[in-house]
């Protein structure tokens, strides 16, 4: 099986081991698919608490239905569909005063399981490339793009000890470095264009 969610290998035989009551196999399965399942409610813009609820519930449903999954190779798509359904349930349960119009899932979240699987490969490649970036770039990009809510430029500048006016050019340089690191990976090369 390809590795849609984690760094460790996951063999389809693990499903049979889970069904036989092997708790270690179940833990391996959860760890393997945890990044994939975790990323989906984040794509739907759910809160950290809602993300955790969806995460727990999706694996509980998988546990209940593992015996009905005919082809273990279809597990990633099955998990994406189930987790997506949980996201929509969560959104429907929200306070009615929150208009559904303000909820903005990312484009790949709306495009279906195949697009999400491709996105997951990209997420994995980006995570690996981030690990190779120098610490200052990694910190800047994390503050700009992974922190919710995004801190103000003044806070970022103070935290990183840099001038506010340099954030824009630094961001561009760091993203360029990230792009170059990604391009050097097999996944990156397949999803990124050639550039100078």
């Amino acid at each position: 099986m390809t590795s849609p969610g984690g760094n460790d290998d996951f063999h389809p035989d693990r499903v049979a081991e889970c069904l036989a009551g092997d708790t270690h196999a179940w833990e391996m399965l959860v760890r393997h698919f945890a990044p994939l399942v975790h990323s989906i409610p984040r794509r739907y813009g759910l809160t950290p608490e809602e993300c955790d609820d969806v995460f727990q519930t999706s694996f509980a449903i998988l546990f209940q239905r593992l015996g009905t999954i005919q082809d273990p190779q279809s597990l990633p798509k099955w998990l994406i569909t189930t987790t997506t359904r949980e996201c929509w349930r969560t959104l429907r349960r929200r306070d009615k005063s929150v208009s559904m119009d303000v909820i903005a899932p990312t484009a790949d979240a709306l495009a279906g399981p195949d697009a999400l699987l491709l996105s997951q490969e990209r997420d994995q490649a980006v995570a690996e490339a981030m690990g190779k970036l120098d610490e200052r770039c990694r910190s800047l990009l994390r503050m700009l793009y992974t922190t919710t809510p995004t801190p103000k430029y003044a806070e970022i500048a103070e935290t990183l000890g840099i001038a506010v006016g340099t954030i824009g050019p630094r961001r561009a340089r760091c993203l360029r470095s990230l792009l170059e690191l990604l391009h050097a990976t097999p996944t990156g090369a397949s999803i990124l264009p050639e550039f100078e």
Partner: peptide, 27 residues
Amino acid sequence: ALRGILDSLRVSGEPEESSILRASSMP
């Protein structure tokens, strides 16, 4: 490509270890 990377950064972040342990100890 940059849009894809920014999307990946926005959804990045590992689940908490405690979440994984709760889900993986389920049976």
